[in-house]
Write a protein that binds this DNA or RNA. Structure first.
Length: 939
RNA sequence: GCCCGAUUAGCUCAGCGGUAGAGCGCCUGCCUUACAAGCAGGAUGUCGCUGGUUCGAAACCGGCAUCGGGCACCA
């Protein structure tokens, strides 16, 4: 760093330079055999669906702050980056692109489609990695992973096999959430309920055998989905409902279809809702499916997988499901079966991705038996593992693991991990049906061996040649993401060094929106795989830090579909990555659910980030000041100051530094990152810049006693002490700030220390405070000095003195210790208040002097006087004293009231009572002194 | 329906049992050779409402209100 630094910090070049230097030096590429306690984080892999928004920037800032801190603590830190293939999201996106070009994906074919997907991945993945680099992420890029990498695919296959062998994966025909838009099954979690204004249609279903004795000849059922009536196979009533008791066991004749279907009694029916009769469509509704199971009702599917009606729908075949709804209603009305239509608000399941209503549809899929896996996780949680931060998210996680439903893991998509199951199609006439036997294997060769063993002989006996076909479907993306903490470390290779060294990981940092999708899936799969070996701790992370979601300027959740994502790059370009990181982390202190970033979309500006940029600039200038005042020396060449030579201000800032260093380490270590950032901001700006640097200026630039004379040995020694203190404080401050502002701190640290380019602050040890540096009593004394200086400055402002105009300052106090502090700091007071002279008197001596016409203020037991003959504005003076009196009076009232309460003295802790008494005495003294000043002035 | 949050200065948020805080914004004065992206000084709040616990409540407990989120859903 050159001596003549520019006045403002320009982050762009600096940040790029250090990112390159770190990476080229392999600074964040740890050796599993390296020293230090292991600390590891796998980053939540962003989807390769385009680019990152501010939410990712936020998460990155959090994770990087944590891992950089741990590195400074001397740990052997691995932070592993990567991206996720996001099966359904990417496929949807690509299909949309193809559709725009008028190419159906079937025409393109699976292989060509996958080729396109891979090139998309290269592009999007590249963009994302570029963005992460630009933030200064201290991850190990040499260990970057993608969920479809061969190694990770091997993990997926292995996991599938093991789960299948344990009976935890099964295949079968069930009602699943079918997304007609993507043409695939989706899991329960990918379904979002939306409240919609719909209708409740009441249909008359005639009894097949005419009216019961004295009863009606029909039942009335109500439905929100008329088109499904074509698949009705029953009508249900509550078993205790007297209105229909006589009808149970009889049948009705389904209008439009003509099928006779039974009336069954089922507890599920709420007799108070509607007519108390429910049409039962087991193939198109989960509740009806359950009723159907209980009563042995047949399943009739009337809809095809693209959401149109199928042949079973008779005349309605070929119609889209929503067209069919209109048509069925019209037909029912025409047939006199429509009783009435009511407006009805109800929840409709929508597909997260497809943005269309999902269709409960009967289909053959693969499932993971979730309960045994969840049980293991609940048990671990009972033992406190993992530990959630903030704690309350633990309940959310636990609730989901309780009453969990099986997980549908097959997707009718192309982009993803192919299901490692081979159907022995020769057993079922060359086609795959629900009944086709299959083998699960690591590859085609193993599949053939297994099939040969199981079916070879039988086949040949039947004169058939064994014929295998791999399941065309892929696995739910979250199945591979669920293995991420160990698949990335080399599992299932038992000899993987990274796995041995860094599994389980230390902390997972993620948003509350994917606790179920991801966190729970990882713990469940890890519990089944035991990646560290049987009997070893399998829980994939010790801690789970859950953060809030970044909202846009209108307080809405950012999402791709809403198009309201804030791109971090323009903000980084404008303010610097460090400023953005600092701003984001500083906002998170409360760990609330929302992170609001104030952002002016039109101007591309943010006052929050701007404030952080200003802070960066402040640090830049503080270091600039140091470089101009250290006489060409470095912290190392200067060495530690001689304790004998330390002045009050020196001992104060060194004590504060030691305290802040401890506090900050404690905060970083417990994920209180926002508090760490706020604490450092205040310490650096207020205590280091506003007070320490201002106080050191005089000593750093000593004036000779007379013009032209050399500096005294005393002045030179003091100058050295001042340099030592400044250098030490600044160097350590940069270390403390490094996790939050890595580039700036690295740059300034090199400037300050002159360290070679190949040495990094990023790999430096956390500062160990000088023993005995902490001194609480001294900090209190110094706080009084600061207050005294403030009072003087305020008085000068009230008097309307020009800042450059010197004026005499007189302190009067009866407290010997305070008088001593003020006397010791006379030179400092002179500098900071432009004092012409500083005099400290005790009240007796002061009383003996002729009453000066002076501006006066009273703070505690300290009177501050500015004798300003001829200049004094008496009104301003009186006003100031009145203000002091009012303040003291208010305090006397409050404290007096408390002390007057006998219960307070008897029940409150003695130290609180004592403090209260002392404060009261002080306030009374203050009020008395101020009144006396008024009298002295003839007021 | 069940479960979580949130409600503090104009704005964004800390504080979680001992006399209300920060940043931004606002007002006054300063280009004081580190920094005008700055310096010094200043103003600003019945801490959502309401009961209770306590010597003492912004903080702890109960109720209410408003906003937000999650889970489950009755056709």
């Amino acid at each position: 760093m050159a001596a003549a630094l520019p006045k403002t910090y320009d982050p762009a070049a600096t940040e790029a330079r250090w990112q390159r230097a770190w990476e080229e030096a392999g600074a964040f590429h740890p050796d599993p055999a390296g020293p230090g306690e292991p600390f590891s984080v796998v980053i939540p892999p962003p989807n390769v669906t385009g680019s990152l928004h501010m939410g990712h920037g936020f998460e990155t800032a959090l994770i990087d702050t944590i891992v950089r801190f741990q590195r400074l603590q001397g740990k052997n830190v691995l932070c592993l980056p990567g991206t996720d293939h996001a099966s359904i999201a990417v496929q949807t996106l690509l299909e949309k692109q193809l559709k725009a070009q008028g190419i159906p994906k079937e025409e393109l074919g699976r292989d060509a489609f996958l080729e396109k997907a891979w090139s998309w991945k290269a592009e999007s993945g590249g963009t994302i990695v570029g963005q992460l680099r630009r933030l200064g992420y201290s991850v190990d890029w040499q260990r970057e992973r993608f969920t479809l990498d061969p190694g990770l695919n091997q993990a997926v296959v292995e996991a599938f096999l093991r789960l299948h062998d344990q009976g935890l994966i099964y295949r079968g025909e069930y009602l699943v959430n079918w997304c007609p838009a993507s043409g695939s099954a989706v899991s329960d979690l990918e379904v979002e309920m939306k409240e919609l204004e719909g209708h409740l249609w009441h249909f008359r279903y005639p009894l097949t055998d005419g009216p019961a004795t004295g009863g009606s000849d029909h039942l009335v059922v109500a439905t929100t989905r008329p088109e499904t009536m074509l698949g009705d196979t029953g009508v249900a009533v509550h078993p205790d409902d007297p209105r229909y008791a006589a009808l149970v066991g009889r049948t009705i004749t389904l209008p439009l279809v003509g099928r006779a279907i039974p009336i069954v009694a089922d507890e599920h029916v709420d007799p108070a809702f509607g007519t108390g009769c429910v049409k039962v469509t087991p193939a198109h509704d989960p509740n009806d499916f359950a009723i159907g199971q209980r009563h042995g009702l047949p399943l009739i599917t009337v809809m095809a997988k693209d959401g149109t009606m199928n042949a079973a729908a008779g005349n309605f075949a070929g119609l889209d499901r929503f067209e069919a709804r209109q048509a069925v209603v019209a037909a029912m009305e025409a047939g006199g079966f429509l009783v009435k239509v009511e407006p009805h608000r109800h929840s409709v399941p929508f597909s997260d991705r497809g943005k269309v209503p999902v269709e409960p549809l009967l289909s053959t899929q693969w499932f993971v038996r979730a309960e045994p896996l969840a049980a293991r996780c609940r048990e671990a949680l009972d033992g406190g593992s993992p530990r959630f931060v903030p704690e309350r998210w633990e309940k959310v996680y636990r609730d989901w693991l309780t009453d969990i439903r099986d997980w549908c893991i097959s997707r009718q998509l192309w982009w993803g991990h192919r299901i490692p199951a081979w159907f022995v199609v020769s057993e079922t006439g060359g086609v795959i049906t629900e009944a086709t036997p299959y083998v699960v294997a690591r590859d085609a060769g193993e599949a053939h061996e297994k099939a040969e063993t199981a079916y070879g002989e039988g086949s040949r006996a039947a004169g058939r040649e064994l014929q295998l076909e791999q399941d065309p479907d892929v696995l739910d993306t979250w199945f591979s993401s669920g293995l991420w903490p160990f698949s990335t470390l080399g599992w299932p290779d038992p000899a993987a060094a990274d796995l041995a060294r860094w599994y389980p990981t230390s902390v997972l940092v993620t948003g509350f929106d994917i606790i179920f999708f991801w966190v729970a899936r990882m713990t469940m799969l890890a519990g089944a795989m035991e990646p560290a070996g049987a009997g070893q701790n399998w829980m994939p992370f010790a801690d789970v830090m859950i953060h809030g979601l970044v909202r846009d300027e209108n307080n809405r959740k950012m999402s791709k579909s809403a198009g309201n994502g804030i791109d971090p790059l323009p903000l980084i370009e404008r303010y610097g990555a460090d400023a953005l990181r600092f701003a984001l982390v500083r906002e998170v202190a409360g760990a609330g659910q929302d992170i609001r970033l104030d952002y002016d979309r039109d101007r591309g500006s943010s006052s929050t980030v701007e404030a952080a940029r200003n802070f960066a600039n402040k640090l830049w200038n503080a270091t600039r000041f140091a470089l101009m005042n250290l006489g060409g020396e470095t912290p190392a060449s200067l060495g530690a100051p001689d304790p004998e030579r330390l002045q009050l201000a020196d001992r104060w800032i060194l004590s504060r530094l030691a305290r802040v260093s401890d506090e900050t380490a404690q905060r970083y270590g417990s994920y209180a990152l926002g508090e760490a950032a706020k604490g450092l901001y205040e310490f650096a700006w207020n205590e280091v810049c506003d007070w320490t640097i201002e106080l050191l200026k005089r000593r750093l630039n000593p004036r000779p006693a007379a013009e032209g004379e050399p500096l005294s040995p005393e002045a030179l020694a003091d100058q050295r002490t001042a340099r030592q203190v400044l250098a030490q404080v600044l160097e350590q401050l940069l270390v403390l700030l490094h996790p939050l502002m890595p580039h700036l701190s690295e740059e300034l640290w090199h400037g300050l220390t002159g360290a070679p380019e190949s040495t990094f602050l990023a790999l430096n040890p956390w500062p160990v405070p000088e023993p005995g540096a902490l001194d609480a009593g001294l900090e209190d004394r110094f706080a009084e000095l600061i207050e005294a200086i403030r009072v003087v400055r305020n008085l000068r402002a009230v008097a309307g003195l020009k800042p450059s105009q010197p004026a005499p300052v007189l302190f009067v106090t009866g407290r010997a210790d305070l008088a001593a502090t003020l006397s010791e700091a006379t030179a400092d007071i002179t500098t900071l208040t432009r004092a012409e002279s500083v005099t400290v008197l005790d009240p007796a001596t002061a009383a003996a002097r002729p009453a000066a016409r002076a501006l006066a203020a009273v703070s505690g037991e300290l009177q501050v006087l500015l004798p300003l003959e001829g200049l004094v504005d008496l009104d301003a003076l009186r006003a100031r004293l009145e203000k002091d009196i009012a303040k003291a009076t208010k305090e006397i009232q409050g404290l007096g009231g408390r002390l007057a309460n006998p219960n307070f003295a008897s029940k409150a802790p003695p130290e609180v009572v004592a403090e209260c008494r002392a404060n009261l005495a002080e306030a009374e003294t203050q009020a008395a002194l101020a009144r006396q000043r008024l009298v002295d002035l003839g007021g």
